[in-house]
Amino acid sequence: MTITKQGELEGLKAIGRIVADTLQAMAKAIEPGMTTRELDDIGRVFLEHAGAVSAPQACYDFPGTTCISVNEEIAHGIPSARAIAAGDLVNIDVSASKNGFFADTGASFQVPPVKSDLTRLCRDGRRAMQIGIAQVGSNKPLAGIGNAIGRFASGRGYTLIRNLASHGVGRSLHEYPEEIATWPNRHDKRRINKGLVLTVEPFLSTGGQWADDGDDGWTLYSAPRAPVVQYEHTVVATDRGAIIVTMPSG
């Protein structure tokens, strides 16, 4: 979507805060022994109380309120009876709608005791997202996002999952521009129009190149197998750069 009115921005900010607060509540609740379904239930209750609707459920009939991916799972993990264990790497992706506006956010978390290599990967995954967001602004090249993230990743010895892209969002969960590379792409000549709403969500890895389908039709795995982290914000392009709408209220 392209924002043209202040009311649209306010509507987007409202759902942005809700998904951000939901993600924060779920992250704080993670503890060894709980199942991913129990963690998803926390997100479900939070969204329901806020009057928001799970986007993956409403748009794609996803079998959960949020996507929760653990260790070898890198995206679209189905909440289940899988128990979270000490030392696990857990990714939570929350997207929802309210009053016709959609927002999408996500982050990866370590369950203590933390591992130094994963701590570095998480820190740099968040930094990669921030570097991508810094490339968002009116009339800037869309490919600038992936080019900047790619320089950062290669300079630190990381790889990027190259078939999980950022996307337009706002009036639906996925809309134009439907695929925004978070890796270097010489062929994309599109420019970012003022008011464009999009996600920035690189998948940073210590060796993974692609996301492969699992047997359940939803869960994705790294190929080759390697740790992967994802951090995501929904942003709006302006003349002064990006407005991040998926910031928690507290």
Rank of each mutant, 00 (worst) to 15 (best):
A143H: 04
C122R: 06
E31W: 00
T4W: 09
D188E: 09
I3V: 15
T234M: 04
Y231R: 00
S205I: 05
T159N: 11
E201H: 13
T246N: 06
Q130Y: 10
I74P: 01
S222N: 11
I3P: 02
T36F: 03
G208A: 15
P227Q: 07
L118V: 13
A211N: 00
N139P: 01
R190F: 07
T22I: 09
H233C: 10
V114Y: 10
I145V: 14
P63C: 11
P113N: 07
I180G: 03
A75Y: 02
G43V: 04
T199G: 02
T238W: 07
R120G: 05
D215W: 01
K140S: 14
G150A: 12
Q6E: 12
L198E: 01
I68S: 01
G16V: 04
I30G: 06
T105G: 04
S205V: 05
D213L: 09
S54A: 07
D88E: 09
N99W: 06
D117N: 13
T65W: 12
S69N: 08
I133K: 04
D88I: 01
S222D: 06
T238S: 12
N163C: 05
E38K: 12
T65R: 06
A242I: 08
T4E: 14
F152C: 11
H233Y: 14
M247Q: 13
Q209M: 11
Q130A: 15
R120T: 14
D88G: 02
D212I: 07
D117P: 08
I84N: 06
V111Q: 07
A25F: 06
R151W: 11
M26C: 02
A128S: 15
E178V: 14
L39F: 09
V228G: 03
Q6V: 14
D21R: 02
P113C: 08
K28R: 12
V228I: 05
A181E: 10
K13E: 15
R127G: 06
A242F: 03
G11L: 05
N193D: 12
I244A: 04
S69H: 07
R82Y: 06
R123C: 08
D117Y: 11
G144M: 02
G11F: 03
R190C: 10
D41R: 10
